[in-house]
């Protein structure tokens, strides 16, 4: 427990600025910004598709990190928001509403609403019970969409037209779409940075360290935590809308519990409760997955033990490793 008391940096941005983690993060972000340039020069369209996916899931990881890393709320059902955001886009598209100005706000609002309900009900429990109840709610949504016969049920639904934004943005242009995802990701990281350094964020971090003490000094933590939960849900719902547009396809599989596990892995791998950790974790995890599956027919035979080793030896994920060596 003492480790978790030492680690929380109340001023995460300033703290990260001093460490090697930030240098790496800046390098990663710069590299990500240049991916479309590289793929245009080499004509490697697959790479652009892969990195678009990396960016979108990184948004999901950033959102999960807000509640899990800073708020201590370990949600094992975060893929549900990807699904809700995705299905909002898919269902509206199927019903003939193709405008992104309608689809995306609905995706965000639906995810926020779901987060509000789940948060209100599950934040009464703690510890491993909280992990499991968020998982249970995600499973419920999973079975709901399997039951949606009109929208493909178990098989999923193809989205024939990406969200249209009038003449402003053409999402069919892969480079435009990539930079849109990139912008959303950076905005998400900025949002988290602003939140965790605000008074609101300090209360949230204080709640992670010691909820009873926060209550004793007069903060109604039962109002702060659901608010934080809803913000994270809304952000991840937006990622879901992006994911549906990216794949042109939605299916219950995007909210299977192992997808929630993937998001947790990204956050913990990168560095829990650090600003850029989730981004680094998403990049490393997805590229590792991709690279290993090219290298061998059995990628998880290597990936699995790597995750185990990270869990056993790497306190604080990749960010933690960088910080430990430098510090």
């Amino acid at each position: 427990m003492s480790a978790s008391l030492e680690r929380p940096s109340l001023d995460a941005a300033a703290d990260a600025r001093l460490t090697g983690g930030t240098a790496i993060a800046v390098a990663v972000i710069a590299a990500l910004a240049l991916v479309p340039v590289y793929t245009t020069l080499t004509g490697n369209a697959f790479l652009l598709t892969l990195f678009t996916r990396v960016l979108i899931l990184a948004i999901g990881a950033v959102s999960l990190n807000l509640i899990m890393g800073y708020g201590g709320m370990v949600s094992f059902g975060h893929a549900a928001y990807l699904g809700i955001g995705g299905y909002a886009v898919g269902i509206l598209a199927k019903e003939g509403i193709g405008s992104g100005f309608v689809q995306w706000p609905v995706a965000v609002a639906a995810s926020a609403l779901y987060a509000l309900v789940v948060g209100a009900l599950s934040l009464r429990t703690r510890g491993v019970y909280f992990i499991m109840i968020t998982l249970a709610f995600a499973q419920m949504i999973y079975y709901v969409v399997i039951g949606l016969d009109r929208y493909g049920g178990d098989d999923g639904l193809t989205i024939y037209r990406r969200s249209s934004f009038g003449g402003i943005l053409d999402l069919n242009n892969k480079t435009v779409f990539y930079y849109l995802c990139f912008a959303v990701l950076l905005a998400g990281i900025y949002l988290v940075a602003r939140i965790v350094n605000s008074r609101f964020g300090l209360v949230i971090q204080g709640t992670r360290a010691n909820e009873r003490r926060m209550q004793a000094i007069g903060f109604p933590t039962f109002r702060y935590k659901p608010a934080c939960f809803v913000i994270a849900g809304a952000l991840c719902g937006l990622a879901g809308a992006l994911l549906a547009n990216h794949a042109n396809f939605i299916s219950p599989a995007m909210m299977h519990w192992t997808r929630s596990g993937d998001l947790i892995v990204m956050v913990v791998l990168g560095g829990l409760g650090t600003l850029f950790g989730p981004l680094i974790g998403a990049v490393v995890f997805l590229l590792l997955e991709e690279g290993l599956s090219r290298l061998t027919e059995y990628p998880d035979l290597i990936l699995g033990p790597i995750l185990l080793l990270v869990a056993i030896y790497a306190h604080g994920g990749i960010e933690g490793l960088l910080r430990g060596r430098r510090g």
Binding site: S4, G261, V265, Y298, L303, G304, I306, L307, L308, A311
Partner: peptide, 18 residues
Amino acid sequence: SHLDHVLGTFGLLLFFNE
């Protein structure tokens, strides 16, 4: 922590499936 358990045993799950 429980979170590390989730990470590590999730890795084992992937490993065993493969």
